[in-house]
């Protein structure tokens, strides 16, 4: 690993200015992706801004129609939060399926969302639950946030502070994990808000995306049968040694159907 300067700011202001001043910074949250990337020299920032001591970035607040999770809240804390389990059980279950127990003791929601790994789980919840990503200088709607492979709407030195999720009437997340890594080959997050339905798919393209055709079909008939014949095209789907594009396209429909069945049940 290459050398870097380490910063451990105590406040968000300090963190923001350290991030802005650095030549080539990375924000260190749980480090579960960043540190392995640095070990492999895929990332070699000049400066690491560790958010561990920044006040106010941890914790879960449940409002009447939202759940707000601080960026430094760990997967383990979301998984085991009685509040999240009650308000959005699908979100607690999703957090409990990330990585392994030791990884969940460190990994954070902010880190996962900022990284926008094409196979990560949290982006599916952010998009599926029509969340708002709050940063140190603005709020970004989920629909505008994920822009490509490891790409988001975040500016270079922008820091996520919290994610605000809308509480759905019903929701479920189902993934088909790659057996060795546990990452989603395809994962589907389905959420129902009154007459509206959102279907967010992770693992299949450069970044998480919605399937509007399924959303419309489910809005009038919230059952797996409603989307059984909807198959997304495989032109821009990921293909790798684990899974060909047409198989991923097939999995999108299967995972979405299972998620609908679970949410409806």
């Amino acid at each position: 690993m290459y050398e870097f300067n380490y910063h451990r700011p105590k406040s968000l202001d300090e963190a923001s200015s350290a991030a802005k001043d650095a030549e080539d910074r990375k924000i260190l949250a749980g480090g579960m992706t960043l540190i392995p990337s640095m070990k492999l020299r895929l990332a070699a920032p000049s400066d690491l801004i560790d958010l561990a001591d920044v006040d106010g970035l941890k914790g879960i607040t449940v409002g009447s129609d939202t759940v707000t999770i601080g960026a430094m809240t760990r997967h383990y804390d979301v998984q085991t939060s009685a509040d999240v389990q009650k308000a959005i059980p699908a979100l607690a279950a999703l957090a409990g399926g990330i990585g392994d127990p030791s990884v969940r003791h460190r990994g954070t929601i902010g880190g996962s969302v900022a990284h926008s790994d094409p196979a990560a789980d949290y982006p599916a919840a952010v998009l599926g639950l029509d969340a708002t990503v709050k940063t140190d200088n603005r709020e970004i709607a989920a629909d505008d946030f994920f822009t490509g492979l490891f790409e988001t709407a975040l500016e270079e030195a922008e820091i996520i502070t919290a994610i605000e999720f809308k509480i759905p009437d019903a929701a479920a997340y189902i993934k088909f994990p790659q057996p060795a890594s546990g990452f989603a080959l395809v994962g589907a997050f389905v959420a129902k808000f009154g007459g509206d339905v959102r279907v967010a798919i992770t693992g299949a393209k450069d970044c998480v995306f919605r399937v509007t055709e399924m959303e419309q079909a489910l809005a009038s008939n919230f059952s797996p049968d409603a989307i059984a014949d909807i198959q997304i095209g495989d032109d821009d789907l990921l293909a790798d040694i684990h899974c060909a594009a047409d198989y991923r396209a097939h999995l999108v429909t299967v995972m979405a159907k299972r998620a609908v069945a679970q949410a409806a049940g």
Partner: peptide, 17 residues
């Protein structure tokens, strides 16, 4: 780390101050 299992290969010593 503070009683919870973590992977020490994925953590900087300096984070454990």
């Amino acid at each position: 780390l503070n009683g919870e299992a973590v992977k020490s290969c994925t953590l900087f010593a300096i984070q454990c101050e």
